[in-house]
Every structure is written in structure tokens, then in C-alpha cells.
Simulated scan of single mutants.
Amino acid sequence: MRTASLADLEVRREVYLAAALDTFSIARLAGLPHLTGTRCLDLGPAGSAVPVWLRDRVGADGEVVTAAGDPLPPAVLAPGRYGLIRARLLLMRVPRPEALLRRLVAALGPGGTLVVEDWHMWPADAVLSAPSPRDAELVERCLRLLIEKVLPGTGTDPTWATRAHAAARAAGLTTVDTQIHVPVWAAGDPGALLLAVDLVRHRHQFLAAGVRPAEVDRARQLVADPGSGLVLRGHPLYSTSGPAPPW
């Protein structure tokens, strides 16, 4: 991956996220009944095909509102406004996810559905195959630094997803269902390319943590080159959903 501007890296990240996650997210939403005419709120990184898919399903009588992050304007989360709210990789990135979850539930109309999707990220046993033990150790070390130090330093909680089910119940959803999607990413796959982007975006943090410049470059090559032979266990995506009370 050539040296790129921060804006270019953000665009790449959005493209890779969409390619890695949209198929599962759309399949999850496809199981919901009665989307025609529904007012929907879609929250999360830009670039996803899900809002387009939703607009096709809700039809001319429905509406799809999109927003990319928190804080959200009060009008966006007006009480009782939506029949469906979907938030992807948002709650794990905010300081008080339980509080935002309660606001999302409050913004549902009677019987409206909330779907929240976040990664549970942990570094152990993430490398399924590597060209050498030395390469496996390097990638595992970079993943550990990313998950345990770099991302928490940006305000991301890699473990939030494991609390989402209980938090959704506490927020008032009448029935809560969680499905977990665990992908496998070969080098060059969109999920693996997300790590390549992180190695560029946070290069200074990796260097400050003791990873040598040549090691950062080698790790980036291993995850980005489809011929490297690297295979990763991707981050499990927890999809937690449930309906609001019928009131």
C-alpha cells in the first residue's frame, strides 16, 4: 500500500468495511418483517450499501435517514420516530455506549426494531496460517498492540459487543436476539486490508510501542498481498437486535 493521505485512508477503510460486513448485515435485516413504508435510521461508517438496500425495501412510503457518528443531533433521535434503527460499529466507539443505546431505544416507535452491530476484538489465536512462525508472531504482536493499546487510545472499546445483549435488555427491548458472525480473512481480503490501513494510519503508535519500521512494512505486506499465505480469524461481529414494547 503506497503512502496515502488520511482522507484517502478513510475512504479505503469505508470501502473495506462495506465489502467485509454488508453481506451479513443485509442478510440479518432481510429476516425482519414489514419493512415497506418504514422510517429507518442507519448509523455507522459511510460507504455501506445497506442504506441503498433499505431504501429499495421501504419503498416510496418509507424513509431512510443516515448519520455517521455521535454526538447525534437531538432531532435525529426524536422519541418514537423510527420503525427500524441500525447502528454498525458505533457503540464500541463512544464513551458511554449504554447511554446511547437507551437513546436509540427511545427513538423507536411502538414495536420498532433496533439492530446494533459491533466487533468483539481479541488478538489471541487470530493467525490461522502464516508463511513462517516469525511472520505469525509479528502479525499477532501488531494485532495485540492495535487491540489493546492503539484502538483504546482512540476511544474504542474492543469488548463492548459482549455487553450489548444485556444492555439491550436493560434498555427496554422486549426480546433480544444476538447472532455472531465469525469470518476468515485471507491476505488481500477486505477484512485483512483493514489491518493494512490501520498499520498506516497508526504507524507512529506502532513504532512508539517498539515495532521496527521494517516490521511494520512486513506486517502490512503480509496482510495486503494475496500471495503471502497469511490467513486470519476475523473479528467476530455481534449483531444484537430486538423490538421495542408495543405500548
Rank of each mutant, 00 (worst) to 15 (best):
E137M: 12
V139E: 07
R134V: 11
P245V: 14
L230D: 10
V105H: 03
L232H: 06
A18M: 05
P71I: 04
A167N: 11
Q179S: 04
E140M: 07
A68R: 13
L151W: 13
V182D: 00
A196G: 15
G47I: 09
R212E: 12
D135W: 12
V211S: 12
D22N: 14
S241Q: 15
L43R: 02
G37E: 08
A68T: 13
V200D: 15
C142T: 14
D61Q: 12
V197T: 05
G44H: 10
R39D: 13
P246V: 14
L35E: 03
D70Q: 08
A19P: 03
L199N: 01
G210F: 06
T159H: 14
L17T: 11
D42Y: 05
L35F: 00
G111D: 08
A166V: 03
V200W: 08
E140C: 10
P245N: 06
V197A: 03
H165T: 15
T154V: 11
G62R: 08
R39G: 04
A168T: 08
P246F: 13
S228V: 10
S228D: 08
E215V: 07
E10I: 07
R86V: 13
R57M: 04
P158W: 11
V223K: 03
M121E: 11
L145I: 09
P158T: 06
R201L: 13
R203F: 07
R28V: 10
G242L: 10
T159I: 01
L230S: 06
A46H: 04
V11E: 13
A87C: 12
P110T: 06
L230F: 00
W185G: 00
S228L: 05
G62C: 04
A208R: 15
R201S: 11
D125P: 01
E14V: 10
D189W: 07
R88A: 13
E148S: 13
L54S: 09
T113D: 01
G242M: 13
G69N: 03
L193S: 02
L193D: 00
L138M: 09
G153C: 01
P158Q: 04
R88F: 03
H120M: 00
H34T: 09
V116S: 02
V116T: 09
L151Y: 11
A161G: 02
D189H: 12
L237S: 05
R212G: 03
I85H: 00
A219N: 04
A166I: 01
L114T: 02
S48A: 13
L237C: 08
V184S: 01
L193F: 00
L72G: 05
A244V: 13
E98G: 07
G44Q: 08
P71D: 05
H120A: 06
V200N: 06
V115M: 05
V11C: 01
G112I: 09
A166E: 11
P33E: 10
A107C: 01
P74L: 09
R88L: 07
V216M: 00
G227K: 10
A99V: 15
L207E: 15
T154Q: 14
V11N: 06
P110L: 01
A224C: 00
A7M: 10
T38E: 08
A75I: 08
T113H: 06
L194Y: 00
W185D: 09
G191T: 00
A219G: 15
V15W: 08
L43Q: 02
S25D: 12
D217V: 07
I85A: 10
G69E: 04
D177C: 06
S129P: 00
E140D: 14
H235V: 04
L6M: 14
A168D: 07
H202F: 15
P95I: 05
V127L: 03
H181Y: 10
A224Q: 02
